[in-house]
Design a protein around this nucleic acid. Structure first.
Lengths: 127, 127
DNA sequence: CCGAATCCTCTGTGATACTG
DNA sequence: CAGTATCACAGAGGATTCGG
């Protein structure tokens, strides 16, 4: 779209930095990944990603909705039905997010190994 | 390497989740991106990413070193010279990280626009 | 120059209970 | 079902000072 390449996360105060840091919120990546397959209701989404309190999940979803990444749809019925789904913008983030996910899942052994090595060396140097 | 696909960030308690969440620490992405081009000394790295206190930057770097993503090299001289650089593991993360960075920088206008729209709608509904 | 040591603040996160 | 309202807290992050 715009070739205006004036945003740089390495520049302090650049809005892109704040946006990127939002993406690192504790539950944000999990919510986005959970919604990758399609819309989910509040409670189902909650079960999908583990133990989140309603308050925290709500605030995470609100932020995502405000940033235009998630769409919230209320269906009038009793009881009320609320669905959350990725917006077009949210889907455009899916690629990068899944890349992070895949990396994390693939390199678990190496990271854990590195930690063990590090801790061993540390302990050894203390003796 | 191992086709053992038993890690899943959506599963609560899976180590991959904790590792992915580490990647979202406030300064971690910035450090990794700043080191993308090559090794940097502590002070230079610090200036590169903005206003971080030495303590916080040190602890960020320690964690990255422990997880095997960053290499720390001490050169004995007066004053001491310490270089930080990405390990092979760290470099393997560069692709995904840069994807996140590019997305953040490219979609700043859309996100800001979405926020404005959201806030307008919210204010309108309060009247 | 590189950080360790201290102290302190803030806010993201969570536990609990309640409502349309 | 899908939240909101309170309260509470650990711990990440920061300011400041000092040391090798």
């Amino acid at each position: 779209m715009d070739s205006d390449q004036s945003f740089n996360v390495l520049v302090q105060g650049c809005p892109s930095r704040e946006i990127m840091q939002r993406l690192g919120d504790k539950w944000t990546p999990l919510v986005l990944l959970a919604l990758a397959e399609g819309p989910l209701r509040f409670t189902v989404l909650r079960q999908r990603i583990g133990t989140v309190t309603p308050k925290v999940l709500t605030s995470t979803l609100r932020t995502l909705e405000r940033d235009g990444l998630v769409l919230r749809t209320v269906t009038a019925q009793v009881p009320v039905r609320v669905d959350y789904e990725l917006s077009e913008l949210g889907q455009s983030l899916l690629g990068p997010m899944q890349a992070i996910r895949v990396w994390s899942e693939e390199h678990v052994p190496k990271v854990l190994q590195a930690r063990d090595d590090f801790d061993d060396r540390e302990e050894a140097s203390r003796l």
